[in-house]
Amino acid sequence: MSYSPSDRRTQIEQLYRTYGHVVMGRCIYLLRNDSEAQDAAQDVFVKVMNSYDRFRMESSPITWILKIATNHCLNVLAARRAPWHAKYRRHAQNVETQRLTERIAPERTSMIRAMLEKVDTETQQIAIHYYVDEMTQSEIATILNRSLPTIRKRLAKFKRVADRELSHDAS
């Protein structure tokens, strides 16, 4: 379906007004940089607009948008993988700036973020949806088009890694 420029502007404004805080929250949470987060959030909305017809058909648009935003930010992070580890460690130890999503469980979300670099991209995404967004495993399986056992396996892997890291930090 094609849309006129005025249609598109209206759609974008509505989308941003409704979901902007969620997308920005996810981008800031993962990228830890306001300007990069703003840039990434715009990219996310471009992706949403490119799939606008699909977006309208989604039974849970917020779930879908969280998936797109998470995936995009993880790709941005993958592009600068080298500084990832040190940067995340630094931020995990210095959590005085609690913003947006982190108000809800700052210690846990910071801890999750610090663990992300230890696992592959798909596990990162699953861990964020499970621990930060608190989606159910079946919700995650649905939006990522993966089986429930796969989600469980990935979460178990993440927990093993987290367990090892926490034990290491404690010792």
Binding site: I12, E13, Y16, R17, H21, Q42, V46, N50, R103
Partner: peptide, 30 residues
């Protein structure tokens, strides 16, 4: 309450028109 506060805080800080312009520009670029 926290979720609502986040949304309200964001709405107060962000200029929707500016952000929409930027997103439109990126779409046009494609």
């Amino acid at each position: 309450s926290e979720l609502r506060a986040q949304a309200e805080s964001f709405a107060a800080k962000v200029d929707i028109t500016v952000e929409s312009d930027a997103i439109l520009a990126r779409l046009d670029q494609q």
